[in-house]
Amino acid sequence: MPPVIDDMIQELLTRHRSTGRVDLNDIAEVVDRRAVSYEEVEYIIDRLESEGLRVAEPLDPGDVEVLRAVLASARRLAAELGRTPTIGEIALASGQAPHTVRRALEQAGRAKAC
Protein backbone atom coordinates (compact mmCIF):
# COMPACT_ATOMS: atom_id res chain seq x y z
CA MET A 1 0.00 0.00 0.00
CA PRO A 2 1.15 3.56 -0.64
CA PRO A 3 2.56 5.41 2.39
CA VAL A 4 -0.35 7.87 2.28
CA ILE A 5 -2.72 5.00 3.15
CA ASP A 6 -0.65 4.15 6.22
CA ASP A 7 -0.70 7.84 7.17
CA MET A 8 -4.52 7.83 6.95
CA ILE A 9 -4.70 4.72 9.11
CA GLN A 10 -2.42 6.28 11.73
CA GLU A 11 -4.54 9.44 11.81
CA LEU A 12 -7.72 7.40 12.27
CA LEU A 13 -6.10 5.31 15.02
CA THR A 14 -4.93 8.46 16.79
CA ARG A 15 -8.38 10.02 16.58
CA HIS A 16 -10.44 6.99 17.52
CA ARG A 17 -8.42 4.58 19.63
CA SER A 18 -9.90 6.08 22.81
CA THR A 19 -13.50 5.55 21.66
CA GLY A 20 -12.93 2.29 19.81
CA ARG A 21 -15.38 3.30 17.08
CA VAL A 22 -14.92 4.75 13.58
CA ASP A 23 -17.82 5.99 11.48
CA LEU A 24 -17.53 5.72 7.70
CA ASN A 25 -17.78 9.52 7.58
CA ASP A 26 -14.63 9.66 9.72
CA ILE A 27 -12.80 7.68 7.05
CA ALA A 28 -14.19 9.96 4.33
CA GLU A 29 -13.05 13.01 6.28
CA VAL A 30 -9.48 11.70 6.56
CA VAL A 31 -9.36 10.56 2.92
CA ASP A 32 -10.67 14.01 1.90
CA ARG A 33 -9.94 14.67 -1.77
CA ARG A 34 -7.22 12.07 -2.18
CA ALA A 35 -7.84 9.46 -4.82
CA VAL A 36 -8.19 6.06 -3.15
CA SER A 37 -9.39 2.81 -4.63
CA TYR A 38 -12.09 0.54 -3.27
CA GLU A 39 -9.37 -1.95 -2.34
CA GLU A 40 -7.49 0.73 -0.38
CA VAL A 41 -10.61 1.65 1.56
CA GLU A 42 -11.18 -2.03 2.34
CA TYR A 43 -7.57 -2.24 3.49
CA ILE A 44 -8.05 0.79 5.76
CA ILE A 45 -11.17 -0.78 7.30
CA ASP A 46 -9.46 -4.15 7.76
CA ARG A 47 -6.47 -2.52 9.47
CA LEU A 48 -8.70 -0.50 11.80
CA GLU A 49 -10.66 -3.59 12.74
CA SER A 50 -7.44 -5.56 13.28
CA GLU A 51 -6.50 -2.84 15.80
CA GLY A 52 -9.74 -3.53 17.66
CA LEU A 53 -11.81 -0.58 16.44
CA ARG A 54 -15.45 -0.99 15.48
CA VAL A 55 -16.05 0.40 12.00
CA ALA A 56 -19.53 1.55 10.94
CA GLU A 57 -21.28 -0.44 13.66
CA PRO A 58 -24.42 0.74 15.45
CA LEU A 59 -24.05 3.04 18.43
CA ASP A 60 -23.43 1.44 21.79
CA PRO A 61 -24.45 2.93 25.17
CA GLY A 62 -21.15 4.85 25.44
CA ASP A 63 -21.72 6.41 22.02
CA VAL A 64 -25.22 7.43 23.09
CA GLU A 65 -23.81 9.15 26.21
CA VAL A 66 -21.40 11.14 24.03
CA LEU A 67 -24.29 12.06 21.75
CA ARG A 68 -26.33 13.26 24.73
CA ALA A 69 -23.43 15.33 26.08
CA VAL A 70 -22.79 16.95 22.72
CA LEU A 71 -26.46 17.78 22.17
CA ALA A 72 -26.86 19.16 25.69
CA SER A 73 -23.81 21.38 25.19
CA ALA A 74 -25.09 22.53 21.80
CA ARG A 75 -28.51 23.44 23.23
CA ARG A 76 -27.01 25.27 26.20
CA LEU A 77 -24.63 27.23 23.98
CA ALA A 78 -27.39 28.13 21.52
CA ALA A 79 -29.45 29.56 24.39
CA GLU A 80 -26.47 31.44 25.82
CA LEU A 81 -25.16 32.76 22.50
CA GLY A 82 -28.48 33.40 20.77
CA ARG A 83 -27.18 31.60 17.66
CA THR A 84 -26.12 28.18 16.48
CA PRO A 85 -22.77 27.34 18.09
CA THR A 86 -19.82 26.25 16.00
CA ILE A 87 -18.32 22.76 16.09
CA GLY A 88 -15.32 24.19 17.94
CA GLU A 89 -17.49 25.86 20.58
CA ILE A 90 -19.45 22.66 21.17
CA ALA A 91 -16.22 20.66 21.34
CA LEU A 92 -14.83 22.96 24.03
CA ALA A 93 -18.06 22.96 26.02
CA SER A 94 -18.58 19.19 25.83
CA GLY A 95 -14.95 18.15 26.23
CA GLN A 96 -15.11 16.16 22.98
CA ALA A 97 -12.88 16.37 19.91
CA PRO A 98 -14.29 18.31 16.94
CA HIS A 99 -14.56 15.15 14.81
CA THR A 100 -16.55 13.50 17.61
CA VAL A 101 -18.91 16.49 17.73
CA ARG A 102 -19.41 16.34 13.95
CA ARG A 103 -20.29 12.64 14.08
CA ALA A 104 -22.64 13.14 17.03
CA LEU A 105 -24.48 15.92 15.22
CA GLU A 106 -24.70 13.74 12.10
CA GLN A 107 -26.10 10.87 14.18
CA ALA A 108 -28.65 13.22 15.76
CA GLY A 109 -29.67 14.44 12.29
CA ARG A 110 -30.14 10.86 11.10
CA ALA A 111 -32.27 10.00 14.11
CA LYS A 112 -34.34 13.13 13.60
CA ALA A 113 -35.00 12.20 9.96
CA CYS A 114 -36.40 8.78 10.94
Rank of each mutant, 00 (worst) to 15 (best):
A113W: 12
E65M: 12
D23Q: 06
R102K: 07
L24P: 08
R102M: 06
A79N: 13
Y38T: 13
T86R: 03
L105G: 01
V64M: 08
L53N: 05
P58N: 09
D32G: 10
T86M: 09
R54S: 14
E106A: 10
V64D: 13
V31Q: 03
V30H: 00
T84H: 13
S73Y: 13
R17S: 13
D60F: 05
A35G: 09
R68N: 11
E80Y: 08
R68Y: 14
R83H: 09
V66I: 15
H99K: 01
S18M: 05
P61Y: 02
A93Q: 04
E29A: 15
A104N: 01
E80T: 10
N25T: 12
L24T: 15
V101Y: 00
V66A: 03
M8P: 07
E39L: 15
L105P: 03
I45R: 00
A35L: 14
A93R: 02
R15A: 09
C114Q: 12
R83A: 12
M1N: 03
E49F: 06
G62R: 05
H99V: 08
R17Q: 13
P85E: 14
E57Q: 15
D7N: 08
L67P: 00
N25F: 14
R68K: 13
G62H: 12
L48K: 01
A97P: 02
R47D: 07
D6R: 11
A104F: 04
T86C: 07
P2V: 05
A28I: 10
D32Y: 05
L67Q: 01
E89M: 08
P2S: 10
D60Q: 06
E80W: 12
A113M: 11
D60W: 07
N25W: 15
L48W: 04
V55K: 00
S18Q: 06
S50T: 14
E39I: 15
G95L: 05
R83T: 10
D23C: 05
E49C: 04
T86L: 10
R103V: 12
G82F: 15
A69L: 14
D63W: 03
Q96L: 05
P85L: 12
E39A: 15
P85V: 10
R68P: 04
L59A: 14
P98W: 05
